[in-house]
């Protein structure tokens, strides 16, 4: 039952964050690239002021999978690194925390490009 509730919350919050993105696409002139940038920066800010952490606690993957979660991860990494190393942490914390995601994208992107080709569309 608990598990089901987890999924429900992930679905609801994750879906909601995506629906907001769709509203931005449909009703503003923001391009998808700008929306992604806004999401990441929003994640850093919301993480920084302590709002996003509780959302991740509540919704799990529903909050961590959307790109705001990526921003949250950056802010969390920076906070821990600054606590440990001072000002140096401001430079190292973000990308260290995001390393898994970025590296995975590079590795799988490279492998996919080796194996596949882009196809015609219809």
């Amino acid at each position: 039952m608990d598990m089901l509730l987890d999924y429900g919350k992930a679905f609801l919050i994750g879906g909601l964050l995506c629906a907001i993105g769709q509203v931005l696409i449909d009703y503003t002139k923001l391009t998808p690239a700008r929306i992604l940038v806004s999401y990441v920066v929003a994640g850093v800010i919301l993480g920084g002021i302590g709002l996003y952490g509780p959302l991740v606690e509540f919704a799990g993957a529903g909050a961590s999978v959307p790109l705001t979660g990526f921003g949250y991860l950056l802010s969390k990494g920076v906070r821990e690194a600054v606590a440990a190393h001072g000002l140096l942490g401001a430079m190292t914390g973000g990308l260290t925390a995001a390393a898994a995601g970025i590296t995975a994208a590079i590795v799988f992107g490279f492998l996919a490009a080796l194996l596949f080709k882009s196809g015609d569309k219809s």
Binding site: I25, P32, S118, G119, D120, K121
Partner: peptide
């Protein structure tokens, strides 16, 4: 050609956009 025009003017063909 759809594919050359997309590559040059818009996005990669496999990019998911609406």
């Amino acid at each position: 050609h759809f594919c050359t025009a997309e590559r040059q003017f818009r996005f990669p063909l496999e990019y998911g956009g609406q």
